[in-house]
């Protein structure tokens, strides 16, 4: 198991990753809702773009969480 510094490093990795994902998701969702409000007929296209955007934004924080978990269990 890791020491206290290792735990701190894991916490920072997860925290910063989640912060980035939160900001990114917030921007994507807000712009999508704005777009749907402006053009309700473009809902399908906006939803698809949002799906891809959210998926790609969340890829890196998931890897950060996984690596932090691996480091904690070394």
């Amino acid at each position: 198991m890791t020491g206290s510094l290792g735990l701190l490093a894991a916490a920072i990795a997860v925290g910063l990753g989640a912060l980035g994902a939160g900001i990114g998701n917030g921007l994507i969702v807000s712009k999508t809702v704005e777009g749907i409000a402006r053009q309700p007929e473009a809902r399908g296209v906006l939803q698809t773009t949002m799906f891809i955007g959210v998926a790609l934004v969340e890829a890196l924080p998931i890897i950060a969480t996984v690596i932090a978990f691996i480091v904690m269990n070394q």
Binding site: A18, A21, G22, N25, V29, V33, I36, R43, Q47, M50, F51, V54, E58, P61, I62, I63, T65, V66, F69
Partner: peptide
């Protein structure tokens, strides 16, 4: 996403997009 779409159409609120669940499933693997 489907839930979000329904909520936007009905004008109700969405609590989350399930980010924590996805992080947790990565950790579970």
């Amino acid at each position: 996403m489907e839930k979000f779409d329904r909520a936007v159409a009905e004008g109700s609120q969405v609590r989350s997009l399930g980010t924590a669940i996805r992080f947790a499933s990565g950790v579970a693997a």
